[in-house]
């Protein structure tokens, strides 16, 4: 077992453990944090495959932005923990069925145990590149030449989704008070203040 293999197994174990943590943790905030950890170890595995652009993009997008907002929401929710855990046993068989399906598919795709179970066949078969190989450049070249149309379509779908999501939140609320900064900046003294001229008066003594 080389050093790379050791790193692979360490992060795989971390990935599996944190993925288990996501579904078994009692507290939803802990679940979300376990999900962050599993994204992180997943990105470490991608780094081993020399996919450094995808690995760092995974951390940047999912860990740095998506999960922050996710955590943000989960922290504010008042979740009834007992109610949440009620369905666990009931839905367990369905979950186990899908998990087995996924495992089957994965074994079907990468399963080549001719070299031994602990010998990581895909890592050895993957092409090893030199130090000057730029994964980012290779990815960019493919995306903007061979796959330019699917890439553009994906971008447009994302744009539509963003606009739809913004429209969904833009309901008019009657009771909200909001400020218009441009109006605030434009305010002059005369809009707020009226100076009244008054004669000096003397309070009459008794």
């Amino acid at each position: 077992m080389t050093f790379t293999d050791f790193i692979f197994f360490a992060f795989s174990a971390l990935l599996l453990a944190s993925a288990m943590g996501v579904i078994t943790a009692r507290n939803p905030v802990h679940s979300a944090l376990f999900l962050v950890l599993s994204f992180f170890s997943c990105s470490a595995l991608w780094l081993l495959l020399e996919a450094e652009f995808l690995a760092i993009a995974l951390v940047l997008v999912y860990v740095g932005a998506v999960m922050v907002l996710f955590l943000f929401i989960v922290m504010m929710l008042d979740i009834n923990l007992v109610q949440m855990r009620e369905g666990f046993v009931r839905y367990l068989p369905v979950g186990v069925f899908f998990a087995l399906c996924l495992v089957g598919i994965m074994i079907w795709v990468v399963g080549d145990f001719s070299a031994g179970v602990f010998e990581v066949p895909t890592l050895q078969q993957a092409v090893q590149h030199g130090a000057d190989y730029s994964n980012t450049k290779a990815l960019g070249r493919v995306i903007y030449t061979d796959y330019v149309l699917p890439f553009e379509i994906a971008a447009v779908i994302l744009l539509v989704a963003i606009i739809a999501a913004i429209i969904l939140t833009m309901r008019r609320r009657e009771m909200t008070k909001y400020q218009t900064p441009s109006k605030q900046v434009m305010v002059k003294r005369n809009d707020r203040l009226r100076i009244v001229k008054m004669e000096a008066t003397v309070e009459e003594s008794e």
């Binding site: 760092i56 940047l60 860990v63 740095g64 922050v68 980012t136």
Partner: peptide, 23 residues
């Protein structure tokens, strides 16, 4: 090779310290 992306990713992780501390 992807140094800039790495820095950007790491600075974005920094917020977890704040969020977790707060919660």
């Amino acid at each position: 090779d992807a140094g800039l992306l790495y820095v950007l990713a790491l600075t974005s992780i920094g917020v977890y310290g704040v969020i977790i501390a707060g919660w």
